[in-house]
Amino acid sequence: MSKIHVTTNVNGDSVEFLCEPDEVLLDVLRDRLNLTGAKEGCGTGDCGACSVTIDGRLVASCLVLGAEAEGRVIETVEGIGSAKDLHPLQRHLLEHAALQCGVCTPGIIVAAKALLAENPDPTEEEARYWLAGNLCRCTGYDKIIRAVLSAATEMRGENA
């Protein structure tokens, strides 16, 4: 099995890597690019912990081949906000105590950011359905949904 050479863009940086033909993007990110923010909770697209965007579209990186990333633009949680300048979603999740163990949090952030890009003013129901593929076993989702909606309010420039 010979490796495939892939040139892509991850979090704004041009990146090259070699991967096995059957290696999924999640494994490439974690094992080859040292970006361990995306997690493997299931490996079958059922939990959302490995959420990333490709060309702006939200996907489960466990169900994408690394080779498919050729020429695409990929964003992971590591590309959202920074320690000095958190994205409003990150800040609101912290302020609402919307994480307990935190293992689903990167996926939630990536997915919620994609939601707000498409729908800056989601209803609670819309947020819940959009995030239905992001399993969280700790929080019961209450504080997560509140944090997403209040981040949305802030991002629209309205008062919470």
């Binding site: 697209g45 059922d46 959302g48 959420s51 490709i54 579209r57 939200l58 996907v59 489960a60 169900l63 994408v64 997915a111 994609a114 939601l115 959009w130 995030l131 239905a132 593929g133 992001n134």
Partner: peptide, 9 residues
């Protein structure tokens, strides 16, 4: 079909 993530593909 599937989650929002699956919808992307």
């Amino acid at each position: 079909i599937g989650s929002t993530q699956v919808q992307g593909r």
